[in-house]
Amino acid sequence: MSADYSNRELIIATVADLLDGVRHVAVGASSPMPAAGAMLLRARNELAKKQRVRISILGSEEHNFFTNGGVELFDCTAQGRVDAFFLGGGQIDGEANINLVGAGPYPQSDVRWPGCFGSAFMYYLVPRVILFREEHSSRVFVPKVDYISAPGVSDGIVRPGGPHAMLTGMCLFSFDKERKRFALKSVHRGFTARDVRENTGFDYDAPDIVPETKAPDAATLELLRGRITEELSESYPSFADMLRAERKAAA
């Protein structure tokens, strides 16, 4: 019997599970849930006296040990010193190609997103890239992206990194690099395998019986609601406030 939890708490706990074993994880400045998952893993490892987890929050002054400017993240990554990173996209397709540029014809995109950022580098070099997109819709998960900011797989080049898993607000997928295909691993409480199928624009593998995403246990929830929320307040104050408000409303 596990305690009650919100979908956001489930996502954060799942991120921590996906990161298990990493030494250094980098997180974007506007990615509170991946950051929360990384902080949860760090706290968990500390309590279990397991290996220390370093977290670099890009753009943060407190959670950033780089001294060589913006280029250091990329140098550090190319040296193999970043084990995990998160990428998203306005569109993601069934071969794990990601589009951070825009929808419609390029360059005069009908809907223009910010741009590739470091994706056309990080996706190739970070061994464990977790694709994260909370919105699970056929608008995001398309048969083929309109623009490939970075491809899911590459042949014939040096590429130690790539997609490890994809986590959405509805489910968790694994990715098979050989077959260039996602497989549905689990659905979050409140959703069904059919919901996922209906809201995903690309084809993927799925077992006959799709399990429910592992619920966070009481110890995880306690950490999340205490220490992790506090830690989040420094870099993501509005997100931390939202988590507190969500809990208050549920109580």
Partner: peptide
Amino acid sequence: IRGIIGSDL
């Protein structure tokens, strides 16, 4: 520089 190959960039 590493990466980039295969991107629409």
